[in-house]
Computed example of a mutant assay.
Amino acid sequence: MMNQPPLISVVVIGHNEGQRLIRCLTSVRECSYPNIELLYIDSHSSDDSVAQAANLSDSVYLASQKGAAAARNVGLAHAQGDWIMFLDGDTILAPLFLSQALADLQADTQLACAWGHRVEKDPQQSIYVRVLDLDWRYPPGETAFCGGDALFRREALLQVEGFNARLLAGEEPEICFWLRKKGWKIMHLDLAMTQHDLAITQFKQYWQRTCRAGYAYAAVSAMTQDFWIQEVRHNYRQSSILLSLMLIFMLGAIWQPLLSAAALLTLTLLMLRSSWRARWRSPHWHNLLLYGVHSWFAQIPITMGIWRCKRDRAAKRRASFGNYKEVKK
C-alpha cells in the first residue's frame, strides 16, 4: 500500500465574494493534490458566503476581527497540516500548483514559503484590471515577500507567531520580513498558481485600492523600522515630481505656454521611460503605455494612503478600510 502524501491545509479567506468564492473552493476540490483539508474563514460577510462554503469546505470559521491577517491566523490555529496554502476567496487555484510547490519546499528545508504566478482571470474587463494585472508579474527566484496566495511551512509560521492582525494591508510582506530575519527564505516559483478577479470597473475602486497600498507601505515600514522605508521615500519623491510638473503646467497655461509644454513633455517622457522599464511584464505595447501612466498617477493616492497611515498612528487609531469591490456608484 502506497504511503499517503502529506496533508496540505488550504485556508481560504473571504468577505462577500459571492460566485468568486464558489469558484475558488471548487478549484481547490478539483486540484490534483490528493490529500487536502479545506478551511474557509469568513470576515463578516453579509451575503451567503458562509452557507455556500459549508457545502464545499471541511470546516467554516468566523474571524473575530476584520482583516486578512486576522482571518489567516484563525486558519492557522485550526489547520491540521504541516503545510498551509493560503488563498484569497477571489482566486482560482491552478490544478498542479500544490504538488509542484510542495516538492520544492520539501527539497529545501530553508524555504518557509513558495508562491507562483498570479494573473487576472479577466484582464479585459476594464483598463484598471489590465494595468493592475501587470503588478502581479514578478521574476522567479528568491524574493523579499509573497502575496496573499502562497504555500507555507507551518513550522516557520509558528516561529513568528503568525500574521500581524494589527495590519489591514501589507501583512504578507511584514511576516516575510520577520521570517527572513529568522533565516528562512521566500521563493517565487516559475509555476502557474492562481487566477485572480480584481473586479475593478470604476475609478473610485482603483483609487481606494491604491490608497490602501500606500497605507500598507507606511504601516509595514513603521512596524519593521526597515522594510519598505525606501519605497515610502520613493513615493514621496515621485509624487513631488508629479505635482510639481502639474503645477508648472497649469501656471504655464496662464502665463507661459512654452513652460506648460515643457512640463507636459517632461511628464510624457517619464511615463514612457516607466513603460520601457516594465517591458518584461508584457509583450503588448498598449498595456505597457497604460502601465507607465499608472506608475506615475498612482503616486498621488499612494502618498495619500501614506499620510493617512501616519495620521492614524499619531492619533493611535486602528486603520479602517472598506471593500473596494463594494464601492457604490
Results as ranks from 00 to 15, higher is better:
K66H: 11
S239G: 02
K204R: 15
L96N: 14
A222E: 10
F297A: 15
R166K: 05
G81T: 09
N287S: 15
L269H: 05
D48G: 10
E161Y: 08
N164I: 00
T26Q: 12
Q80I: 04
L98I: 12
S320Y: 07
I41E: 00
Q4E: 11
N323S: 12
L189H: 01
W307E: 01
A71P: 00
Q124T: 14
Y206G: 10
L96Q: 14
N164K: 02
R154H: 06
Q100P: 00
I22W: 00
R313P: 00
R154A: 08
I13A: 11
H294M: 06
K182F: 00
F297P: 00
H188T: 01
Q208V: 13
F249Y: 13
L242E: 03
I175E: 01
G67F: 09
L158Q: 14
Y138R: 13
L243C: 10
A319S: 14
V129K: 05
A319E: 13
K66Q: 12
Q159V: 11
A169L: 07
F163G: 06
L264E: 03
D133C: 07
L56V: 08
S126P: 05
A263K: 08
R308L: 14
H117C: 01
S260M: 07
N323L: 12
H188D: 00
A70G: 04
A314C: 09
G170D: 04
T266E: 01
P139E: 10
L38D: 05
P257Y: 12
G305N: 11
Y40P: 03
R20T: 03
L25D: 02
A53V: 08
A192I: 01
L132S: 09
L25F: 04
G116V: 11
I8Q: 05
R137K: 11
M250F: 13
A69G: 09
G147Y: 05
N73S: 09
V60C: 11
L267G: 11
R233D: 11
